[in-house]
Design a protein around this nucleic acid. Sequence first.
DNA 1: TTAACTGTACTATTACTGATAATACACTAT
DNA 2: ATAGTGTATTATCAGTAATAGTACAGTTAA
Lengths: 124, 124
Amino acid sequence: MITIDYQSRAPLYEQIVEKFQMLILTGALPPGSQMPSVRSLALELSINPNTIQKAFALLEQQGYIFPIKGKGSFVAENDRLIIQKRENCLLKLEALLRHAREIGVPKADCTALLTRIYHQEVAL
Amino acid sequence: MITIDYQSRAPLYEQIVEKFQMLILTGALPPGSQMPSVRSLALELSINPNTIQKAFALLEQQGYIFPIKGKGSFVAENDRLIIQKRENCLLKLEALLRHAREIGVPKADCTALLTRIYHQEVAL
DNA sequence: TTAACTGTACTATTACTGATAATACACTAT
DNA sequence: ATAGTGTATTATCAGTAATAGTACAGTTAA
């Protein structure tokens, strides 16, 4: 269902959070659908259940999922999440672009890159 | 001379490395100029000298500075460094742009941001 | 009811890494 | 000589990620 990068500086639980954020925001996991159980996912990823639990607790806290004791966790429906996520992405992009300009990356290189990335498929 | 962000996830020594990379690549510290001493910088930043030493060792390893025992560390001259740095920045930018497209950030928002950032001043 | 699954909570332990502390040595300049 | 450089070494502390093990409460279906 998801993959983990053991080279990353980000902790496992945070990677899990981000992966599921993506799956939910892109609609791969639609609202109302059931999340994998803590134990099954832990088994699948060969990760301690506590680590999964920590990730799910964060996802719940951020409004991505909601738990039902004895049944499982389910994807919540929230339109504001995707908006927040996009705004956050634009903030990161702004910081990176400022840095690029600062160290002398030509504007043309950035525009070319942008065109190339966004040319491959139609945006959502 | 430089400032440290104690909220950042990046370790102190890595922040120091990046700050001096910027100072050197932008020409604020020109080739041949003397770096602050390990001890003085440690005092100024209220950081352990060993941490500064670790940062300087990395800077030397990457070709940014060269040490002379008993005299100090000095900024090296290397044109390839700035090129490598820019390429690395473009790689990060590519990854971030792919992510932006993936979560549905409109292309127009990215182009607008790019224009705004690069409009403020002429690139180096 | 029983069994097997769910989420949740708690404590303890391990492992890793960043950062500090305290020295020590070799070299340079005044 | 003295004070400043870079460099190296060892030890220790602190924070956090991750694991391990156990326990409890609720749901579901045989």
